[in-house]
Design a protein around this nucleic acid. Sequence first.
RNA 1: UCCCGGUUAGCUUAAUGGCAGAGCAAGCGGCUGUGGCCCGCUAGAUCGGAGUUCGAUUCCCCGACUGGGACCCA
Length: 413
Amino acid sequence: MKFQPPKGTRDLLPEDASKLQKIMEICRSVFTKYGFEPLITPAFESFELLSAKGGLGEAVKDEIYYFKDKSDRELGLRFDLTMPLARVVSSTSLPKPFKRYVIDKVWRYDNPQSMRWREFWQADIDVVGSGSLLSDVECLSAICEILDKLGFTDYKIRTNSRKLLQNEFEKIVAKEKILDVFRIIDKLEKIGFDGVGDELKNKGVDPTDVLNILKIGSLDKISDNDGKKELGELFSIAKKFGIEKRLKFDISLVRGLEYYTSVVFEVSLGANVSCGGGGRYDALIEKVGGQSMPATGISLGLDRILEVMKENNMFKTEKTATKVFVANVDENALNDAIKITKTLRENDINSQMDLMGRNFGKQLEYANSLQIPYVLIVGPTEVKKKKFELKDMKTGKQRELSLNQIISIFSKL
RNA sequence: UCCCGGUUAGCUUAAUGGCAGAGCAAGCGGCUGUGGCCCGCUAGAUCGGAGUUCGAUUCCCCGACUGGGACCCA
């Protein structure tokens, strides 16, 4: 094998590619239903924009695809779909709320690992300009509807508030250690209380108080603060949308370090597979040069969803979208087959014909191997009668039908 | 960047310090008006580079990629 895809990237052959497309179609239709509009932005952005987000600054260079163009401009491939959105809304004046969706690739210079690639697909929705938690719930509701439609039954959305976190932990942890502590408690689901305790000790933090907070399972037992208030409100709106069972308060959820300002979400499929996340980022747009503006959004990682769905056999397997193979009985019938295929396609019926000069039997074999459900048989007899044999490949039965009858049958399918 | 495993044809795999063999998939034919079965044929491989050796796909070293993990996760 001479060439392989670059590290951390992959080819999706027709079978997987059409599965991913199915996922994308469902995302798109739900987003559209909720009133989100598409936005298309470049794959690469100025490095300055990409590094604007957090305290990482120049260090982002190690984590994204960074390069200079021939005029020495510093650029980078987008690592998420939120920064480009922030750029667009900060430099335009679209009606608010601006609700946008995008389903596209992003790139990160990560080390490939389980469910981690250097190029992957995200489906992202955001609401810009509304500070109401109703916006957050709309995003959550859309995500739930997508996962329901895809056939997931046991997904959960872990939910927390950055304000609440800040509030609880700044009381007991020294200011300069708080980011370290956040990074450690974010691992709770993965390494457990003992693991978190050990790592805290290694960082020179007394684990007792921290662990006590982490063991608080319900929001009620948290002392009053802004974070608690907004989470309470979020849950009560979620109830109106009928998605409150999906939301699970989780005080150990941190997500990133500099980006979110308020509520945060992480979508988990069954055990430990995170397939998306998001939250409110009310300060970001001002940070990239726009007016101060609230915003919230969630992304789904489509590659992970694809992998989990494959593992659990959640796809109805269809090898091809072709409905009819138009077979010519001999080479003299090819012209008629072409005409008929053209007519079928004009009527939006997915159809194909022989391109290999194969004999009739081999054409059936091909249709069979692709699991094309019907074969339309075109030969001199049929052409004369203007009636064609439509063969059901599953049962093997054939019916003699006019072209119009055939078209109306497939239009109803 | 680090740690552990892996890499033989499109896929699954066999074998060997001395001719690399199969199954599935693909193409063609048996079978130019009826597929799924069967038979034949064709094409197709030892990840790359140094080293040990008369000889390396096999042993050793380095690298790439890959599976997993650490770190990181914007």
